[in-house]
Design a protein around this nucleic acid. Structure first.
Lengths: 365, 365
DNA sequence: CGGTTGGCCGGAACCGTTACCGGAACACCC
DNA sequence: GGGTGTTCCGGTAACGGTTCCGGCCAACCG
């Protein structure tokens, strides 16, 4: 939106929306408005509106006349004008931190299904794990007047984003994030602890005593809870287990860097837990480079079951959750507040551990 | 949208948008309108509009007064009203056949970057490989008055969808699809032949004489071109190579079914080309069930490089293309027509073959 | 000093729809 | 026959902006 530099491209040099009636070539004539329907049916505009919105003050004869005119003109109401007048857009904004994460696809799928059946449509914006984009997208959705927002934020702690969220007019639901209560946002979250605890217990049971946890940002709920859960298990198990925590970002790059660091340590950890499929990818790349085999050399657990973990040889144990369900629940929370007047609340979904051959007893070094 | 059954929930029983001034509790007061800015600055509404849209007929003093009022009220223009008046929404609709396909993420990423820098935003709708949803989404976008559409259709041949596309007002760009010229759509497509031809040549060079091609729907360009390419190679190579074509849908289910059929045949094919990562997943599942090893028992090629193909043991050869670039080009074609007045045209991007250890000479049976 | 020019501003029409309001037409009942 | 309702419809003011038009005023020129 720079200064007015390019001559001929500024709006005030154009006429008042030049005649769009490209009727000459026979294609795509300008769409009909309610006004034209009313003229054709020889009734008032308000009557057309009543017929179309199902208002009871309509005679059978009137309805028939209007409907036939609507059909003849192939009329469809203008959503923009409706939204402006009604004060609602029937659309929901979804900010997702990372569209490349296949989990997001499932979440979106689940949310979309619920929203669609409630008459809402989904606008997606991708913030590429950049808190600044989070904020920009929230602001954008607000100017677009979405009726509500679903947020899978890159950061829970970014001040600018939080301030913005506090000012959002409609209901807000965050996914797998925890926001200050004063913001009044609903939340659909996983309890990451049971899955993580089971995983750590399983590794300890197998005999592992040095376990590395590569995880995402502590500015996001999953990262925090996973570290908590691991600490909790270590605290209650009598075995002297050494933990190596490697928090960072939720990227393949961090996965590689963290795995390299962990696996270069002298008493090398005998098991690694990768807190996400992006981290798993980085981890596997490094292991391949270092010539280390999954299971035989290092036991491996990942978070969230994806084709890679299922089909890898050996198959990789994972901490699972119902991602489609997560999206569905988030959408239900939103719709509940949108049409049902529900209060903001937090819905918690479970996680569980799925053992697979990537975890075996450590080779006695 | 059923009949008027639920009493108290019909619009005509509500007042004219009851006062939304939830000012009492001190939170989220209703946003300011241009009118209020004008009142505060004690100028005409039109002057506010001129200042904000950069119109030249504005004195320095006026600009300063308006801007300070804008700042004091934290005013932001209503996109809906602007769109209605200006006749453009600065948004682009993107119909994608399958959001779970990680390729789509890249395409969306590329397209979004270009569109954002041109001032447009992206609305995504997912049609789950269902042609009926394709049509519904196109219709939806049209009623939302998007300025243009990018389509990655589930079917190129669905009549209803095609008719709808013909009536779309703004420019349309299809991704990796081929539409009748009369529709006037631009296209960003890959030429799938060079990659596929190189793959088939590679397999023949290794000594393979029975090759199965599992591919998606022939109602989509990639499926057709890949089969063509394979036929072309077989026609020009003197070796008597037998090809098994297994077209179907672009799903893991078809991948499984086709792989099962191919691998159950008596003289079993010694190599399989999976035309997409979903098909690859199905294929690997079946091979594992049947106890067949990649490379040693069956050579394998997949289309589109994803983490699974890179990290599988052995790594899987793939036919690659620049997916981010594909999305970028599609968006550029659209923006060119949107702001530059370009003509509809087709942009073709290459594919190439990346050999990997999943392809070895067939074991002499 | 009168006429013309140009900068700057206010007023008003309009984008396409919704919801309120008032009223015409008709039936009904005492 | 004059109230008293119903039923149904048309007119109209919004919703929140944008753009055209006309007019005021100062500057400039001869």
């Amino acid at each position: 939106m720079g200064g007015p530099n390019e001559p001929g491209s500024e709006p005030w040099e154009l006429g008042d929306r030049g005649a769009t009636q490209s009727d000459a070539n026979g294609s795509a004539r300008s769409r009909a408005s309610m006004r034209e329907v009313a003229d054709l049916a020889d009734v008032a505009i308000s009557s057309v509106s009543r017929v179309l919105s199902g208002h009871p003050d309509v005679s059978a004869q009137m309805r028939e006349r209007v409907l036939s005119a609507v059909a003849r003109l192939d009329y469809e109401p203008d959503f923009l004008a409706q939204s402006l007048r009604r004060g609602q857009t029937l659309s929901v904004g979804f900010v997702l931190a990372d569209i490349s994460n296949p989990l997001m696809a499932d979440i979106v799928l689940g949310a979309e299904a619920v929203l669609r059946s409630a008459g809402y449509s989904l606008l997606l914006m991708n913030s590429e794990n950049d808190p600044a984009l989070d904020a920009a997208h929230v602001r954008f959705f607000q100017s677009r007047r979405v009726d509500g927002m679903i947020l899978s934020l890159a950061s829970e702690t970014d001040g600018a984003t939080l301030d913005l969220i506090a000012q959002v007019e409609g209901p807000v639901v965050v996914i797998d994030r925890q926001l200050p209560a004063r913001l009044g946002a609903s939340a659909a979250v996983n309890d990451h602890r049971p899955g993580m605890e089971a995983a750590v217990e399983h590794l300890i049971d197998l005999g592992h005593r040095r376990i590395a946890l590569i995880t995402g940002s502590p500015a996001q709920l999953p990262g925090r809870e996973r570290m908590e859960a691991m600490r909790a298990v270590l605290a209650r198990r009598p075995e002297a287990v050494e933990a190596i925590y490697l928090p960072g970002s939720f990227s393949t790059e961090h996965g590689e860097a963290a795995a390299r660091r962990a696996l270069s340590a002298d008493p090398r950890p005998t098991a690694i837990i990768a807190g996400g499929n992006q981290l798993l990818i980085g981890c596997l790349r490094v292991m391949r480079q270092m010539g280390l085999r999954v299971a035989q050399d290092v036991s491996l657990v990942t978070c969230d079951d994806v084709p890679l973990s299922e089909l890898y040889e050996p198959p990789i144990a994972s901490i699972d959750r119902d991602t489609v369900g997560l999206g569905r629940v988030a959408a239900e929370l939103l719709v509940g507040r949108l049409v049902g007047g529900d209060e903001a609340r937090t819905e918690i979904l479970p996680t569980s551990f799925r053992a697979r051959p990537s975890c075996i007893p450590p080779s006695i070094a």
